[in-house]
Design a protein around this nucleic acid. Structure first.
Lengths: 137, 137
DNA sequence: TTAAACTTTGCAATAGTGTTGCACTAACTT
DNA sequence: AAGTTAGTGCAACACTATTGCAAAGTTTAA
């Protein structure tokens, strides 16, 4: 994915494509995995933690990435599909490998429909499966 | 639930029922909700954070409580059913109310069976539903 | 084209959660 | 009762997430 494309992508979601944001997005997109703030920080030492943090927050607010709390202690972020608005229909299962610590979006597995008891309403969900991925098996 | 019962309960799970542990268990059982370390700390100011922390860890290791990471930033703990061994069959959905911040075990809703792609194995899962509970609606 | 206004970035500081080492005390063993 | 083991309290620390502020960069608009 080249920079032009990324810039267009960000603009289409009403986020000004600064150099830092483009870099953060590019890393997330190319890695194809959910990455934490610390993961990103390591990949480009020169960039400030808070800058990355704010980029992620901006992305999150504009449905460019979605957060995944896989229980590893830090929230990770993964790029959304184009049409994603992060509502209940866009949600999918995430797989957390307890060996390598990598988190993968299972976009092919939407979150199953749940019938809650009377009186409960919901608009979001997290479904994390913990196990061992093919690479670690 | 009186102290005798709690002591028996803990003993049946091979945990020595000290005063602190009994207190922590009692609070969790009576509240009937998932509580975080900070929640518990607030309820009895005199007890040390680390003591509660270690009680919870001990409980967790012995399948007396199960952890719930509801995305609120701190892990909560809820009492297990009697026969629970915290394996995949004992898992259930948790409901996190985004208004009041309370987390409830939906024991009546077991985690649905998921067919993962080839090569993945799993032994644990967290399914958190975020929304508004009847009390807050 | 230049000043004002706004946005983004870097830095430093802070709050909160989770966790551990160590010393003291309580409980259990023989 | 002395020795051993387990539990508790305290202090310290690591790490994640987050914010205020000032400097740098960008955009707007006279």
């Amino acid at each position: 994915m080249d920079n032009k494309e990324i810039e267009q992508k960000l603009e289409s979601k009403n986020v000004k494509p600064t150099a830092m944001r483009t870099l953060v997005y590019k890393t997330l997109a190319e890695t194809g995995k959910a990455l934490s703030l610390a993961d990103l920080e390591q990949r480009f030492e020169k960039v400030e933690r808070s800058t990355i943090f704010r980029a992620l927050k901006t992305f999150e607010e504009n449905f460019i990435v979605h957060p995944v709390d896989d229980g590893s202690g830090s929230v990770k972020y993964a790029v959304c599909d184009d049409e994603c608005t992060c509502n209940i229909h866009d949600l999918h299962v995430h797989f957390y490998c307890t060996r390598c610590g990598r988190t993968r979006c299972m976009k092919e597995l939407p979150i199953p429909n749940i019938k809650l008891p009377e009186g409960y309403t919901y608009d979001n969900a997290q479904f994390i499966i913990n196990g061992v991925c093919p690479r670690c098996d």
